[in-house]
Amino acid sequence: MRKRHIVLTLYIVFLMLPIYWLLNMSFKTTNEILGGFSAFPRDFTLDSYRTIFTDPTWYNAYINSITYVVINTVISVMIALPAAYAFSRYRFLGDKHLFFWLLSNRMAPAAVFVLPFVNLYSAVGLFDTPWAVALAHTLFNVPLAVWILEGFMSGVPKELDETAYVDGYSFPSFFLRIFLPTISAGIGVAAFFCFMFSWVEMLLAKNLTSVAAKPIVAAMTKTASTSGYELGLLAAAGVLTIIPGAIVIYFVRNYIAKGFALGRV
């Protein structure tokens, strides 16, 4: 038993070290960072955070990111719900091929899609809006949501549907009033995963926007390269990107393992 605790503790320490280092740097002045190695900030400062919260290019980048992530999560889960129901309850013409095709999009390298996406979203006039990124991210989030929801829905016995129909429910009222509450945990997990994968993605988010809808991930890379190396600012911005993830993870902590198994355990 003792040995297990040690191994687990070591692993968690290993996971926390880079996060600690990021936090440590975010409270230092740039001069102190470049001045030499130190495990704690000597001149504790909140300047980096102050800059981010007062400079519109910084905080707008956060708002832009959250906007497209939320749009994406809502769209992905809403259209995935009926589809997942269909896959979990019915066989239909081409169902297996369709499911595989969806799956293959989850596996598609974003690098392959960057250039055509820029062309496509420029052509439909959405380039440099949160909608472009939100819609582009559905490429991998919709299949993922369908997959997770289908796993959760398959765990619900079909008798539930049949009893409801016998009781005189129509399909929409059954789906909204009985079925959705039953799989609310699954919906939460699917929404969490859509949020997460949209939040962490950079390649598409960066290339589908330029000025007006610049996301935080792009703002960070630009700062890092243009103004020399403002490490303190970069670290503070990094810390602030971890916080939303840490908050949402708390809500789904009991289901997260099941979610990673795509609802199939």
Binding site: I12, P18, I19, L22, M202, V217, A235, I242, G245, N254
Partner: peptide, 21 residues
């Protein structure tokens, strides 16, 4: 669970910057 899952929620470019510094 929360501590272990944390790295998965860090934006990928931040992961890069983090290890860079």
């Amino acid at each position: 669970l929360v501590l272990v899952a944390l790295p998965l929620l860090v934006p990928w470019n931040v992961v890069g910057s983090m290890w860079n510094i």
